[in-house]
Amino acid sequence: MGDNGSVWLPDAMSTLAGEVDALFWFVFWASTIIFAMVIVAKVYFMVKFRRTDETYVPEPVEESKVLEAVWIVLPTILTLIVFTWGFEVFVKLNTAPPDSYEISVRAQQWSWEFQYQEGAVSYTEMYVPVGRPVKLVMNSSDVLHSFFVPDFRIKHDVIPNRYTSVWFEATQAGEYDIYCTEYCGTQHSGMMAKVVAVPQDEFNKWIAEQSQDLPPAELGLQVYAQCQACHSVDGSAGIGPTLAGLYGTTRPLADGSTVVADEDYLLESIVNPMAKIAEGYQPVMPAMFSSTLSPKQLDGLVAYIKTLE
């Protein structure tokens, strides 16, 4: 819990989070008060009218029309207030200011890719400037995902074949968790990333750095962020084989044959994962990954794998 979070809600770190929270607390306290009244009445009746005489049969009670009207009209008014209020904030949450900084977000099983207007691409961290509205234009390359940042109180499904968008304006520098909240397969819970909010000048600096040419292995390290859910680099087993020490070894395949893990094999396994299945692993790797990678990125990835001892 940070400085302005509470037992119920995480830190409010976007311009609209406070408005959502105010509404949350209004509904919360209204509900709690009414709930408490019902429970108090219930307990009071339970004690007061408990059965003491087994033969006693009470008379029916004349129902009070006024009381009935009260508990129909009051909740109606309350819910209408809540509805209208919720509607207003909903519209704000869904309408990005026109001067927003736009970032393209692409979701896939099980990673996020963030593309900036300047051409930079990042994977596990989305850099955004503080104090400037940011609009995310999102698209999925396989199944449904959902982009959720609790600290900003924003969430929207990411759909294949269609763009959806959310926007926010971070109020403080810091790192905020991004979750996928639409079930998307084995590593659904591992599909996390972070929003890194930094001051505008720092952001500009970061963007400039990212746009420079990187050595292939370093570019590959960036791309590898998409692979880490299944393929470790420290030798531990995962959904797929570890990449550590892979290059140059002779690999047993599921069909009984073997293959030498040279550059061609690595490239083929990335581009066409079903061609050769390593022994002891399921053929589950989507071919989707490679379809979005440039030749340069693919080469970088192979170069990176070669560096792993």
Binding site: N94, Y163, V166
Partner: peptide
């Protein structure tokens, strides 16, 4: 109707 969803599909 609000900017959170785009009317047209990619296709």
């Amino acid at each position: 109707d609000l900017s959170n969803t785009f009317e047209q599909t990619l296709m």
